[in-house]
Design a protein around this nucleic acid. Structure first.
Lengths: 349, 349
DNA sequence: TAAGCTTGTGGGAGCGCTCCCAATTCTTGC
DNA sequence: GCAAGAATTGGGAGCGCTCCCACAAGCTTA
């Protein structure tokens, strides 16, 4: 198993008494190699610990087997939200399973946008890109579209009519959350939204409105406060909404809930007795916190997996027609909504 | 600025009336190119939007300009701790600044350890690796040592005598934290440690002990509870320590503080009135939570930057002698230690 | 038994760079 | 005005693969 330093295909070929081409066929699991030859070559490969040189393979095959994950500057502050690491995990894992390498491109400064993007688009670096969707006016996505690199986007993008994306059903998820609160008996329901420049933020707000509308509850604009998916954003949004005395609140991300609950506590309010809360995401902490959080579960890791699979499909088969995958969401009832205390009612369609 | 698809050095050479070699020299900013020629070539490059093919460059130069970040399975659960994303940011940013690409290798399953590592070590993929240090018996690091790939480790590793690493002064940081608590007047000081299989966990415990020793305070083993750097680990460790009624507690990571504070609240204890808390890390949330957290600040992003710089140094100049960089830490006094209420004393050396 | 398949194998060409050395041009000193 | 040297420039070789085509066997089929 020793790693002889500079072994090449040619070396392995010589050592196993065949040609370079045959060794290549064995390594790439191509057909048209007889079983005894395949065995012999495999033995030599294992004995020598040989691995083909990736740069050479990339050059010859015009594929690098590298997938890039692009995290725009506008979601940088969100990097502390467990959502992104979780998604990254799903993506990384699926890359590994498909024998691809994951390259991470974080845009920190505005300068990066000019410097990094051309670098990413260099030929011979990545086969394709996964981009986190951002607000409408993000330069990044429009630049992507102009390039010739295959890409998918997490979350429905705003102004890219024929982009491929993977998303969750934000509208219906939010709808489930708010309908649940209504079923329990709350009527003065507020919401802390995501950034309303993003489709995610907008869709979840739509779901909120739809649930109220369906139950003929007039909605009070003062009970709708825009957040930004950060913890401190949740905190300040909560402070802003409290004077209008909601009896329940739908918060568009679990991470914002953390900040909001702190605001409630400082104002002497207990969850769920004084104010009921339903979140969105179902992060690992959400079940551990106290009170445990009623929330909308979205399948974050599977989403990451699907992103990779979709991208590989596009790389192999072209970007047309655009792929669109929407994952379902699920209401997870725990303590923070007060369902258990307030009434017998439990399940939800 | 249009991206003509398949431009090569040769094309640029023809278009600017020079040879391939000269274009290469211009692109790589090598000397021995006359100013007018350089100008002419640069103009053509800008007009055409040409970027050299990275796979070809890697093959010819035997450098990929890719750096791998290896996150072992044993720190996977920590991915929700903002520490790792923050570190990753520092690393990514510095990679960009040095025109390197960051590849992310997350080990999710045990299987990955066997499958992924050989892939990482393939020639032509990465120039070097940054590995998060883990507990002593982690297979990963010893495997790294056997390889021929340059690497650095975050945090002093346990059984790698001549590995290069970048770390913070955990011992002195913890010492500062506990000495501060002693200065304020606390005497029954507990600690929730990190995993004691890691040097980080051990060093911070040593610092705790050293501060007590220096003040002739006998330490009570029941006040030392091992945590695991996770939020829920902090919660359970706190529950375990509370019966022994510490008046102050040093918690070895801010993220564990989050869990611990929840345990305190459930037991009706207020911070800092009933129990004083000092953390470690100084995460972004630490200043925002309520009460704001007194903690030991470690320079996470600079640490990431130094990791990259050290690795590049090793790649260029060889791994001997091993590089060792230790960053200093700093006590940040806020509300959770009760210093402001309890006494006039403020500063701390 | 010859002609036509199918299956297995080998080697040339080429992917697009870098690096080295040879060739050319420009300086400079005496 | 010319040799010696420095500064430029060009082109060949090669990095280690993949891909294509040619060729060698073995196997049908008439």
């Amino acid at each position: 198993m020793g790693l002889n330093p500079k072994l090449t295909l040619e070396d392995i070929a010589r050592m196993s008494g065949v040609s370079r081409s045959t060794v290549s066929r064995v390594i790439n699991q191509q057909p048209n190699v007889s079983e005894p030859v395949r065995q012999r070559v495999m033995d030599v490969i294992h004995q020598t610990g040989f691995h083909p040189n990736l740069a050479a393979r990339s050059l010859a095959s015009q594929r690098s087997y590298i997938i890039g994950l692009v995290i725009p500057r506008s979601v940088q502050n969100l990097f502390s939200d467990p959502y992104i690491p979780l998604l990254t995990q799903g993506i990384a894992q699926t890359c590994n399973q498909n024998n691809h390498t994951l390259a991470l491109f974080l845009f920190n400064t505005e300068e990066d946008e000019y410097k990094l993007l051309p670098r990413i688009r260099r030929p011979g670096l990545v086969d394709g890109l996964i981009a986190l969707s951002t607000h409408a006016d993000d330069e990044l996505l429009t630049q992507l579209r102009q390039g010739d690199i295959p890409y998918v986007i997490t979350g429905r993008p705003m102004n890219l009519p024929d982009a491929s994306y993977v998303d969750v059903d934000n509208l219906y998820g939010a709808f489930l959350a708010v309908r649940h609160l209504i079923h329990i008996g709350y009527r003065h329901i507020g919401t802390i939204t995501g950034p309303l420049k993003t489709t995610t933020g907008m869709d979840r707000l739509e779901g909120y409105k739809k649930a109220l509308f369906e139950s003929f509850i007039e909605y009070d604009p003062r009970l709708i406060v825009e957040g930004d998916f950060t913890q401190s954003g949740g905190y300040y949004a909560a402070l802003k909404i409290l004077p209008h005395q909601p009896d329940a609140i739908f918060i568009a991300s679990d991470y914002m809930v953390l900040g909001a609950i702190q605001a409630f506590q400082e104002n002497g309010l207990t969850v769920p007795d004084d104010i009921a809360v339903v979140g969105f995401d179902d992060l690992p902490i959400s079940s551990q916190m106290s009170p445990s959080l009623t929330t909308i579960r979205q399948p974050i890791r599977p989403l990451g997996a699907k992103l990779v699979e979709t991208l590989l499909d596009i790389i192999d088969n072209g970007s047309q027609p655009p792929r669109r995958v929407i994952f379902g969401t699920e209401l997870v009832i725990r303590e923070s909504c007060g369902a258990h205390q307030k009434m017998v009612f439990q399940g939800d369609g």
